[in-house]
Design a binder for these strands. Structure first.
Length: 425
RNA sequence: GUGGCCGUAGCUCAGUUAGGUUAGAGCGCCAGGUUGUGAUCCUGGAUGCCGGGGGUUCGAAUCCCCUCGGUCACCCCA
């Protein structure tokens, strides 16, 4: 491979035309679903004071070792956002919008991970958050928004996993039970998990190491340790999901990677993806986060969907393909004049997407380009047309030798727009 | 961060096992196949410091070391 002077940094990608068209459409569909549910868009800055993110919990890898942080010229300690939720809470604490505040977003996040398929250092998410209500039905509403979105893009093999992480006051009793349980079985537990047990017992449940599987399967279950409020809330969410006919699986050992979650936690898993990156979206309730960022004690729920992984899943299922972005018309000009430029401009002003073949090439070369452009019609101007003030209009058929369909005609310059419109109807 | 596999034209890859003349294929790209027209077909053409650096050797794409990048698993997460 030729060695380029520069190349995209590890974990970053250059998205180009069919992919970007697809992503734009993806976000457009999400925006539409979010708007239907009463959510308004926000565009937070891509970087914040590092404290905004460290408040997410030092125990999670996302903040302890994956933060992209640096000092700016005024020696501020800054970090590229690893997710949007912290920024949303910071915005709420700072601007105090009316509650309940429904908001959605789309944009890149940054995590200094070792790249892998479906895992990039810069990756895009769409998501929605609702701040200022602890009504369990809002949890259900958010899950429904994500779920309807998947329906809309045609993704089928998605499993919704649901769990309740309890309230902050329920957590210590459960953590204690976990420590006791795993502590009694240290000899069976993998070395890695023994370390995790010390720092964050919950996370041991997330281990994918084979030797831990048996132990984890029999571990104490979080939902047995819920307080009355959390338990009632969880029941209400489950009832809501049944009412909306949204299928879910209870996942008593589902713990999420960020430490701020309480009560409802959920994750969307694609059954069409193999490998380690099957979680295409997830979220939950984070009732203490706004306050932790200096705001009022308002509760929140939200979720984020990974665009890249979701599109990977779409590929696997053969749905939500790239939209056709080819121009409707293409101009072929071998005349030395500027007719080609003028005709293209005229069509564009009339709202017709128009591209141009390379004017320095021969007629045959330009026609080849016209064929590849995917345009429905070619406007041909050679010296003859230039002289006569006409344009040859050639409908571009999939088979150039087929005799059926419209044939090439010569029209006056003034009639080009209307003729093209007729052909592309 | 740890470990396995991989890195040859724009793309997909052969050649690396036992080092040996100017490094190959398919696709793609460009130009022709008579005077201005997209398929196919025919002919011709361009493009690689064989990821980079160092070493062994008379000689390295082939062997050794380092490095960079990719990929997969763990870790973690979207």
């Amino acid at each position: 491979m030729a060695k380029p002077l520069f190349q995209a940094l590890p974990g970053t990608r250059d998205l180009m035309s069919p992919d970007t068209d697809r992503m734009r459409e993806f976000v457009a569909v999400f925006a539409d679903e979010a708007a239907k549910a009463g959510f308004g868009q926000i565009i937070p800055p891509m970087f914040e004071d590092v404290g905004v993110f460290t408040r997410l919990g030092e125990a999670s890898d996302v903040v302890s070792k994956e933060l992209y942080d640096f000092r700016d010229k005024a020696d501020r300690h800054i970090a590229l956002r690893p997710e949007h939720t912290a920024s949303v809470c910071r915005i709420f604490a700072e601007k105090r919008p009316l509650t309940p505040w429904r908001t959605w977003y789309a944009g890149p996040n940054f995590r200094y991970d070792k790249p892998q398929k479906g895992r990039y250092r810069q990756f895009d998410q769409v998501g929605a958050e609702l701040i200022g209500s602890d009504e369990p039905d809002t949890d259900t509403e958010l899950i429904a928004l994500a779920s309807r979105f998947y329906d809309r893009i045609g993704l089928k093999n998605v499993t919704l996993l649901v769990n309740s992480l309890g309230d902050a006051t329920d957590r210590p009793r459960y953590l204690e039970a976990l420590r006791t349980y795993f502590g009694a079985n240290l000899d069976v537990l993998s070395e890695q998990s023994q370390i995790t047990l010390k720092t964050n017992p919950l996370r041991v449940l997330d281990s994918k190491r084979r030797e831990d599987a048996g132990l984890i399967a029999d571990a104490p279950v979080l939902t047995d340790y819920l307080g009355d409020d959390a338990a009632a809330s969880f029941e209400r969410v489950k009832a809501g999901l049944r009412g909306l006919d949204i299928k879910f699986e209870l996942a008593p050992r589902l713990v999420r990677g960020l430490d701020y979650y309480n009560r409802t936690a959920f994750e969307f898993i694609s059954e069409s993806l193999d490998g380690a990156q099957t979680a295409i979206g997830g979220g939950g309730r984070y009732d203490g986060l706004v306050e932790a960022l200096g705001g009022p004690p308002e509760s929140g729920v939200g979720f984020a969907l990974g665009i890249d992984r979701t599109i990977l899943a779409c590929d696997a299922e053969g749905v939500f393909g790239a939209p056709d972005n080819s121009a409707a018309a293409v101009v072929v000009c071998t005349s030395p004049g500027t007719e080609g430029l003028e005709i293209a401009d005229e069509l564009r002003r009339a709202g017709i997407a128009t591209t141009r073949a390379d004017g320095t090439r021969s007629m045959k070369g330009q026609m080849k380009q016209a064929g590849k452009s995917g345009a429905k019609v070619a406007l041909i101007v050679g010296p003859d047309e230039a002289e006569a003030g006409t344009v040859s209009v050639r409908p571009m058929l999939s088979d150039p030798n087929s005799s059926d369909g419209p044939t090439q005609s010569v029209v006056p310059r003034a009639d080009v727009v209307t003729t093209v419109k007729e052909i592309i109807q």
